[in-house]
Simulated assay, not measured.
Amino acid sequence: MNAAGTDAGTLSVDQLTVRLSGRDIVSGVSLTAAAGQITGVIGPNGSGKSTLLRAVYRHLKPAAGRIVVGDFDLWDISPAAHARVVASVPQERDSVNGITVREVVGLGRVPHQGSFRRESSEDRDAIEQSLTEVGLSDKASRRFHSLSGGEKQRVLLARCFAQRAHVFVLDEPTNHLDVAHQVQLLTLLKDRRDTCLMTLHDLGVAAAVCDELFVLSEGVIVASGPPRSVLTPELLRSVFGIRASVGTHPLTGGLQISIDYLANPGYSPNASCGGPLTQTLID
Rank of each mutant, 00 (worst) to 15 (best):
Q37H: 10
D123G: 09
S238Q: 13
E92P: 02
L11E: 02
G150H: 00
S224H: 14
L177N: 05
F168N: 02
V86G: 02
I77R: 15
A35G: 06
V110F: 13
T174M: 05
V69W: 06
Q182P: 03
L156H: 03
E122M: 10
P79E: 13
R192Y: 00
V18P: 06
G43N: 04
I77K: 15
N2R: 12
P265W: 11
F116M: 14
L11R: 03
P226A: 15
Q182R: 11
P233A: 11
V239F: 04
D178F: 01
T195P: 00
E128W: 05
Q163R: 04
G5E: 01
P227W: 06
V169M: 04
H201F: 12
H59F: 13
L281K: 13
S50P: 10
S130I: 02
P250W: 12
V169Q: 02
E103L: 05
G253K: 10
H82I: 02
Q182I: 06
A55C: 10
D178V: 05
R117N: 14
P276E: 14
F144P: 05
D7V: 01
G247T: 12
P90D: 10
L216N: 08
T6P: 00
H82E: 12
P79G: 14
R142N: 13
A34M: 04
G70D: 08
H145Y: 03
A165I: 01
S78W: 11
V209Q: 03
C273E: 06
G247C: 10
S217N: 15
S50A: 14
H166P: 00
D260K: 06
D123M: 08
V104D: 05
R159M: 06
D73G: 08
P276T: 12
P227H: 09
G150D: 00
D283M: 07
D283Y: 09
A3G: 13
C160M: 08
G28Y: 04
R243S: 13
R109G: 06
D260P: 07
H176Y: 09
L60M: 14
D211Y: 04
L231D: 10
L281C: 13
P62F: 02
G98I: 10
L277M: 15
V134N: 01
H82W: 13
L136F: 00
E151C: 05
Q153E: 03
L53N: 10
V205Y: 04
F214A: 05
K49I: 11
A4N: 07
F144T: 09
T278M: 12
V41L: 11
N270K: 08
H82R: 15
G135Y: 00
L31V: 04
L188R: 07
R54T: 06
L281E: 14
A80Q: 15
N97D: 14
A34Q: 10
L157A: 00
L136V: 00
H145E: 15
H181V: 01
Y267S: 11
K152H: 00
L185G: 02
S121F: 09
L189R: 03
L231Q: 09
T51K: 11
V89Q: 10
S120V: 09
V246F: 09
I221Q: 05
T17A: 06
L74Q: 12
R192E: 01
T51C: 13
A64Q: 12
D194I: 03
T6V: 08
S137L: 14
Q182T: 09
G43E: 06
Q15V: 01
A140I: 04
G28P: 06
R58P: 07
P62K: 05
C273Q: 12
G266A: 14
L186H: 01
D14W: 00
G253L: 12
C196S: 04
A223K: 07
V230M: 09
S121P: 02
Q129V: 02
